[in-house]
């Protein structure tokens, strides 16, 4: 059993919390997100023969007025940045978060999650942006909190990056 700290990042109301809610063991209510700015959940994940306990730090979303407390990022093994493609602004925020994390914590395994895949017709992500995202060198996973799509895949992709870097 290996324990890992994973951070969940993204703009406000991109659906981070909704995305993982059904897949984790929870102890605290969501009010912590708005008060302390973070809520911690636990998820078991098996990759190949290895068992992982992921401590998920669901960190309050960033917007123009609030910024992520960088102290919460300390010691994480990887991160997931959630984007809501129906709101293009969340894409810009995601990129700025990604830059901020890289400068703070260095190069770490990361996954971009394009959430709300059930509303794909409303996506407003133009091809150049989409392409740019793929060129960043991290997996891009389409997810849907509503349909429970891509959540496990998202975690698997993240852990596989770790495996590859260690292996």
């Amino acid at each position: 059993m290996i324990q890992q700290k994973i951070c969940l990042l993204g703009s406000f109301s991109v659906g981070k919390t909704s995305l993982i809610r059904r897949y984790v063991d929870s102890l605290f209510s969501e009010k912590y997100l708005t008060t302390v700015g973070v809520k911690i959940d636990k998820k078991y994940q098996k990759v190949d023969d290895k068992e992982y306990t992921l401590m998920l730090w669901d960190i309050a979303g960033e917007d123009d007025f609030t910024s992520i407390r960088t102290a919460y990022l300390r010691g994480m093994a990887g991160y997931i940045i959630v984007i809501d493609p129906t709101r293009p602004h969340s894409y810009d925020t995601a990129l700025s978060i990604h830059d901020m994390v890289k400068s703070n914590a260095g190069a770490l395994p990361a996954v971009f999650a394009l959430n709300k895949a059930d509303l794909k017709q409303s996506w407003q992500l133009d091809p150049p942006r989409y392409q740019h995202l793929h060129q960043l060198g991290h997996p891009v996973v389409e997810t849907s909190a509503k349909q429970g799509q891509g959540v496990d895949d998202m975690f698997l992709q993240l852990l596989q990056q770790r495996e590859n870097s260690h292996g």
Binding site: S26, L27, V36, I40, M55, W57
Partner: peptide
Amino acid sequence: DPAIISGMFTA
């Protein structure tokens, strides 16, 4: 759950 408590405690 002590693992979650531990994380939240640190946070």
